[in-house]
Each structure stands twice: as structure tokens, then as C-alpha cells.
């Protein structure tokens, strides 16, 4: 069991319609656990004037309607909430979401570069990348984009010097100590090592983003046939 120490939590405004609650410094799974506990509370006990929340690495930003409650009122409500949460269950290790990835070739144009950069074989790179369990720290940048922590230092790779103008949807990339998946086609500077046939963001789904902050993820290497099968199934064929 872990608990939130209220004296270590900081609060500050982001403009006239949002409050930031900060739980510490740095990329840290314990901070993420605290953030999950608070967002779970906000999912369950909403309040009048609440608009939405945005979890990030160390913060939760809560948007509110200042004509319903002002900053001082919201601040005391948030402090009360933090005090009420008390002890937090450790996150459940069993819920790991598997993301199939076709590594290399045209789906992963930087696979060879990343392997060469670390002087390992592409097979070793794929094995290291697909063995780890990653934590979704936050979703941001574009709809459904997960910031995944837990990348093995042996394959951490700097971003490309010149970003690509087009990174296809589903591309799996590495940027420094992070790995992630591009949900929609966008320009991007991450090293692209593969592609998933899963759709990480679909506005027609009840939960449009496949992943949310706090989820655990593992990548699974698949072949071209499986990639096409999954992609086909998704379209209802």
C-alpha cells in the first residue's frame, strides 16, 4: 500500500479556469499511481462546475467553471479530496494490454539504424523492445498518443535530427528513454521501428483512445500475414 502525503502535494492555477495538482518531480511510477488514484476519484465523484481533467507525468490539471466555484473554493475541495483518498492499492499487475507490432521493413524504416546505433542485431533489438512491460504515463500530443515509460536503456535512442513530414498511423517509435505509438498520421521525429495494425484512436468507439494513463502495455512481434489479418478484421471483413 502507498498513500499520498498531502504535505508534498502542490497546487497552482493554470489561468482562470484550471488548477494544477502536482505530486512530485520526475518520471516515477509511484507518482503515476497517485495520479491514477485521484483521476479514479474524479471519475466517480464529479462535482458541479467540473469540466474535465488532464493527467500528465507529475500533474493532474482540473478544468472548472469559475462562475460555479472560484479558485479558493476549488482549492479547498481538491485538498479535501486528496486527504480523503488515503491509502492506494498498488496497480494491478495482471492487466497488461498487448500491442501487436510488425517490426522493420517499410513499417519500421529506422529499425536497422537503431540496431546499428547500439551495435546489436535487429533481432536483439526487437526482443528487447517486446519483452519489457511499459507504463502509460500520459496521453497527449495528438489524440490517443501514449507516452510510455520503461524503455530498456540499451535501446534508448535520440530523436531523428530532421523530423519526417509524414509518420503513418500505427507507427511505433523510440525517442530517448520513451517509446510510443502514433495514433494518427502526423509529422514526427521519433525513430520508427515498426507498426501496429491496431487503431489507437477511433472517435466512433465509446472510449476513443485505446490506452489511458496508468495502463500497462507489452509489444508482441507479429508477421506480415498476422498484420493483414488483424487490420482486415478491424474493418469487419
Amino acid at each position: 500500500m502507498i498513500s499520498i502525503n498531502p504535505s508534498l502535494v502542490q497546487y497552482y492555477p493554470l489561468g482562470d479556469s484550471a488548477i494544477v495538482i502536482q505530486f512530485g518531480e520526475g518520471v516515477n511510477p509511484l507518482i503515476n499511481t497517485q495520479i491514477r488514484a485521484v483521476t479514479a476519484w474524479l471519475d466517480e465523484y464529479t462535482f458541479e462546475g467540473f469540466v474535465e481533467y488532464v493527467p500528465a507525468f507529475t500533474t493532474i490539471t482540473v478544468y472548472y467553471e469559475p462562475w460555479i466555484l472560484d479558485y479558493k473554493e476549488l482549492l479547498s475541495l481538491m485538498k479535501e479530496m486528496i486527504a480523503d483518498i488515503g491509502e492506494i492499492q498498488e496497480p494491478d499487475e495482471s492487466g497488461i494490454i498487448e500491442i501487436p507490432v510488425l517490426y522493420g521493413a517499410e513499417q519500421g524504416p529506422d529499425l536497422q539504424y537503431v540496431a546499428d546505433f547500439h551495435q546489436i542485431s535487429t533481432a536483439e533489438l526487437i526482443s528487447v523492445h517486446s519483452q519489457a512491460v511499459y507504463l502509460v504515463y500520459m496521453i497527449g500530443f495528438v489524440p490517443g498518443f501514449p507516452y510510455l515509460g520503461g524503455l530498456d536503456e540499451r535501446i534508448a535512442t535520440p530523436r531523428k535530427d530532421v523530423p519526417r513530414s509524414v509518420v503513418p498511423a500505427g507507427s511505433v517509435g523510440i525517442a530517448g528513454q520513451q517509446t510510443g505509438v502514433y495514433p494518427i498520421e502526423t509529422p514526427g521525429g521519433w525513430q520508427i521501428i515498426g507498426r501496429t495494425p491496431l487503431n489507437l484512436f477511433d472517435p466512433d468507439r465509446a472510449a476513443p483512445a485505446l490506452l489511458k494513463a496508468g495502463d500497462r502495455v507489452r509489444f508482441k512481434a507479429i508477421d506480415q500475414t498476422t498484420f493483414i489479418e488483424i487490420k482486415g478484421a478491424k474493418h469487419g471483413h
Binding site: V54, I139, F141, P208
Partner: peptide, 10 residues
Amino acid sequence: RYGYQKSGMA
């Protein structure tokens, strides 16, 4: 469009 910023939606 409110309520979906946590999913990265503008």
C-alpha cells in the same frame, strides 16, 4: 469538445 483531453483530443 470537452471531456476527451485526457485522451489527447483537442
